[in-house]
Simulated scan of single mutants.
Amino acid sequence: MEYAIRAEGLVRRFGATTALAGVDLAVPTGTVFGLLGPNGAGKTTAVRVLTTLLRADEGHATVGGFDVRRDAHQVRQIIGLTGQYASVDETLTGSENLLLIGRLLGMGRADAKARARQLLADFHLSDAGERPAKTYSGGMRRRLDLAASLVGRPQVLFLDEPTTGLDPRSRTELWDIVRDLVGSGVTVLLTTQYLEEADQLASEIAVVDHGRVIAQGTPEQLKSKTGGQTLAIRPVDPADVPRVVAVAGAAAGSTAEVVQQTVSVPVNDPGVLPTVVRQLDEAGVPVAELSLRGASLDEVFLSLTGHPAEQATPTDLEGAPA
């Protein structure tokens, strides 16, 4: 099958608020597809529609070739879902959580136990398998939650902001697990507001804002949309930052921004670089770092939406009732 997930014109309203305003998606089989956007953009609503937890008001979608409305039962048999927050029972052990899910899926007791042991080993949780989940760290709970979504060996896995609240090490470990899953043939739809996460994992990204897909392509294709490059300068003396802002902004003809004493300004003409270097030298401003680089996903998102990806939109629809 060429596409594991297809959606055309998905619309979902909550009262007077439109959470999805005509979303189209085509997710190739055996890939990670990223839905990138801020809180309230409609990412979770899209996942709920595709996983049969919500019905779209308009539009059509299939998962694994099954219609999410007409063939909801078949869709549920081939998917796994990990939400933004761990859904495991904290009073049960890790092993008991996985065993319970296996039994609910119709597995025999022996098969469910074997599957639980295998997943605990795969997710490096064997030593903690007989401990209550409430004793797990945040990273361990997320790994257990992901393991729970894989008990039924899904063909398509939906990960809705799976690394929210995790420390960098736990996040990296979860990224490695996702890569291994895709290597085994699983299709992953990943929603995230972390630009680095989308860049690291997704072979294709759809940027979502206010319930619409406003751009789509590979990370490199999206980066190329902004055109030009970014000049970044960090002066040796933080007191020189205002002077650097003035020089760089005037030379590039753009507004410079300052983040942690580093001045960044979009540049369309590479010839700006030697001009800025010469003017800073003439002004007696020593520079600790200077680079000219291509656009980042942060800059792509900012240019497309007018606000950073981590900035929530005024109405947070992600928590809207199902």
Rank of each mutant, 00 (worst) to 15 (best):
L273R: 00
L25A: 02
R179Q: 15
A133F: 07
L304V: 04
V277I: 13
V207I: 15
F123S: 07
R153W: 10
N39H: 00
L273S: 05
D237Q: 06
G9N: 14
A288K: 09
L174S: 01
N268C: 02
N97Q: 09
G102R: 11
H73K: 11
A283R: 08
D89N: 15
V178M: 06
H210Q: 14
A248C: 14
S95Y: 11
Q279W: 01
Y85K: 09
L174A: 03
T275R: 14
L231K: 11
L81Q: 04
T218N: 03
L190E: 08
T163A: 02
S254N: 09
L92R: 14
R131Q: 15
L157T: 03
S303Y: 08
G228R: 00
E318S: 15
T226M: 03
T45N: 05
G83W: 01
Y85C: 00
L120V: 11
R103T: 13
F66P: 04
A128L: 12
G319T: 03
L181M: 08
S303A: 15
L190T: 02
D160G: 09
E96Y: 11
L157Y: 05
F33P: 07
D24K: 00
G139S: 10
E96Q: 14
D240Y: 12
R69F: 07
G249V: 02
A202H: 00
P321M: 13
G211Y: 02
L273W: 06
I233Q: 03
H307C: 03
T262K: 10
G129K: 08
T44K: 06
V276T: 09
Q77I: 04
A121S: 14
A147D: 07
Q74N: 04
P314A: 03
A121C: 07
P321Y: 13
L189Y: 12
L231V: 10
Y85A: 04
A283N: 04
A232E: 13
L166E: 06
R109Y: 12
I79N: 09
T230H: 06
I205R: 02
Q84F: 04
P168S: 07
V88L: 10
P219W: 00
R131A: 12
V259E: 14
S170P: 08
Q261T: 13
